[in-house]
C-alpha cells in the first residue's frame, strides 16, 4: 500500500542509555512506518525495547541515532518549540498500569486537564470544564466523576481516565503501552472495544505495545516483533500468524496460551535460541520476503525462509 499516508516514519532508529563504558544500546536499526488510521503493534518480551520506541516517538526518551518523522517532519533530536508543542498535542500516550500512572493526590478533573493547563489550551474555566466533561463522557465515564480521586475507581475505570487524559489533547497518534495487561479479563474486552470505537470516531492511529499476541491479533492491522532491541519480523496481523518465518516469532506464537484444552494440551512449545544465528561472516539484512512481510536474517536464513513459503 504505497499510496497510504505515512503518519510516523522511523529510520535507522537507535536509542542508547548512559555513555562511555556504561553505554547500553536498547534499540538499534529499527525501521518502520505507521500509516494513518491503522493500528500498528509492537510485540516482544520485557526488556526488548518496545516501550523505549514508544517513548521515543512521544519525545520522552532522546534518540541517539536515526530519525523519527511525524507527518513528514523530523521530530527527533533538537526541534523548534512550536513543533515540540505540536508533537506533545498530537502524540499522546496511554500507560500500562492504571494504578501507578494516575496522580493519587489529584482529582480526576485535574488529571484529565493537566495537559490543557500546562499548555494553556483552553479559553476560560468554563471551557476547560466543558472539555473535561466531554472527554469523560467519550470514554464512558460520568462527568461527576471529575471531583473524585483515582483510588475511588476500579482498574477499568482508571484506565478510562488515562484514556480521557490522552484524548483531551485531541491527538492524532496514540501510543498505547500495554493498556490492558494489568486489567481483568472481563474489563479487557471493554477497554479494547473503547479503543476500537475511538479509533473509528476520531480517526486515531495507534501504536499498540504488548507482549500478549492473542490480544494483538484482534486489534492490529500490522504487527512488528521485536527482540533485544531489533525488529525481527513485520507483517500484516493475519499473515504473521499464518506464516511466521523468524524462529523468535515462532517461539512467541507457540507460547501464547490458547483457551482451548484440547489444543493446549497437545501443543509443543518452541524455545528460541539466539545462538542459531551465525552472523559472523554473512551479515543479516532486513528483507521484504513477501509483499508487506519483512524479516531479519542473512542470505542463508532467508533462503530457508523462502523455501517455507
Amino acid at each position: 500500500m504505497p499510496d497510504r499516508e505515512k503518519l510516523i516514519e522511523i529510520k535507522d532508529l537507535q536509542i542508547s542509555f548512559g555513555s562511555g563504558r556504561k553505554k547500553f544500546v536498547a534499540v538499534d536499526h529499527v525501521n518502520f512506518d505507521i500509516y494513518k488510521g491503522e493500528t500498528f503493534s509492537l510485540v516482544g518480551e520485557s526488556g526488548s525495547g518496545k516501550t523505549t520506541i514508544g517513548r521515543a516517538i512521544t519525545r520522552i526518551n532522546p534518540v541517539s541515532a536515526g530519525e523519527i518523522r511525524f507527518k513528514g517532519q523530523v521530530i527527533s533530536g533538537k526541534i523548534s518549540k512550536e513543533l515540540d508543542l505540536e508533537v506533545i498535542k498530537k502524540c499522546q500516550m496511554i500507560f500500562q498500569d492504571p494504578m501507578a500512572s494516575l496522580n493519587e493526590r489529584a482529582k480526576v478533573d485535574y488529571i484529565v486537564s493537566e495537559g490543557l493547563i500546562n499548555h494553556h489550551l483552553y479559553k476560560d474555566e468554563a471551557d476547560r470544564k466543558a472539555k473535561v466533561e466531554a472527554a469523560l463522557r467519550e470514554v464512558g465515564l460520568l462527568p461527576e466523576f471529575a471531583s473524585r480521586f483515582p483510588h475511588e475507581f476500579s482498574g477499568g475505570q482508571r484506565q478510562r481516565i488515562g484514556i480521557a487524559r490522552a484524548l483531551i489533547m485531541q491527538p492524532e497518534f496514540v501510543v498505547a503501552d500495554e493498556p490492558i495487561s494489568a486489567l481483568d479479563v472481563s474489563i479487557r474486552a471493554q477497554v479494547l472495544n473503547l479503543l476500537n470505537q475511538l479509533q473509528k470516531t476520531r480517526g486515531l492511529t495507534y501504536l499498540f505495545i504488548a507482549h500478549d499476541l492473542s490480544v494483538v491479533r484482534f486489534i492490529s492491522d500490522r504487527i512488528a516483533v521485536i527482540h533485544k532491541g531489533r525488529i525481527v519480523e513485520l507483517a500484516e496481523a493475519e499473515e504473521l500468524f499464518l506464516h511466521p518465518f523468524h524462529p523468535y516469532t515462532k517461539a512467541l506464537l507457540s507460547a501464547v496460551p490458547i483457551p482451548d484444552p484440547e489444543i493446549e494440551k497437545k501443543k509443543k512449545l518452541l524455545v528460541y535460541d539466539p545462538s542459531i544465528h551465525d552472523y559472523s561472516v554473512n551479515k543479516p539484512i532486513w528483507e521484504e520476503i513477501l509483499p508487506g512481510h519483512f524479516v531479519y536474517g542473512n542470505e542463508k536464513e532467508l533462503e530457508g525462509y523462502r523455501k517455507e513459503i
Binding site: S186, A189, S214
Partner: peptide, 23 residues
C-alpha cells in the same frame, strides 16, 4: 458463558468484543 465469550481470541476484527455489562 460470559467469561468465555469475552475472550479477545474469539473476536472478529472490526466488531466489538462481547463484554460483561455491569459490575
Amino acid at each position: 458463558w460470559a467469561l468465555l465469550s469475552s475472550l479477545p481470541q474469539l473476536g472478529v476484527k472490526g466488531e466489538p468484543l462481547p463484554t460483561i455489562e455491569g459490575t
